[in-house]
């Protein structure tokens, strides 16, 4: 991808240099993580149940570098004026914050699909939740294995 061929910023280089040291001190949080993820999804849906289906969440099953993980969320929707995707949100289980990113699809959006690059601090479960224009919520979950974690975990050493 030609867009990635830009010079690495100094901050990024520093991040990479300190990454190895911090990854070694990374502490995986206790089992409450799964409930946290469910709570984050419930907060997005305002308590409404999510249904399985419609959402396709593309994440590499084995991630070699947790600092930039390509993810794509695609929702099965005709994207007409009355039947469209309003929002898509991505949540994680074990990063310091449950939220990753939230996307709103405006009237000029084409397909109901968005791609970005995210950080993963540990092997964990990710959720992609879509809110449709009719108010229903659809979710897809994936489990990813991360071999080099992103240094986002701030647990005191």
């Amino acid at each position: 991808m030609p867009m990635a061929a830009q010079p690495i910023s100094r901050g990024r280089r520093r991040a990479l240099a300190t990454g190895a040291g911090l990854a070694a001190s990374l502490v995986v949080r206790p089992a409450a993580a799964a409930e946290d993820l469910a709570a984050a999804v419930a907060a997005f849906t305002a308590g409404a149940q999510t249904r399985a289906g419609k959402v396709t969440f593309d994440v590499p099953a084995l991630v070699e570098n947790g600092n930039a993980v390509p993810v794509t969320v695609t929702v099965d929707s005709p994207m007409t004026a009355n039947d469209r995707v309003a929002m898509v949100a991505i949540f994680n289980e074990k990063n310091p914050e449950r939220g990753v990113a939230q996307f709103a699809f405006g009237p000029r959006a084409g397909r109901a699909s968005v791609s970005t690059h995210i950080r993963l601090a540990a092997s964990q479960k990710l959720a992609a939740v879509a809110r449709m224009s009719d108010g229903t919520h659809w979710a897809a979950y994936v489990d990813v294995v991360v071999t080099l974690a992103a240094c986002v975990d701030g647990d005191p050493v």
Binding site: P96, A101, G110, R119
Partner: peptide, 13 residues
């Protein structure tokens, strides 16, 4: 609006 996004620290550099 085409697409709007709200970002958290978990978005990559």
């Amino acid at each position: 609006l085409v697409v709007g996004a709200e970002l958290h620290p978990a978005v990559a550099a």
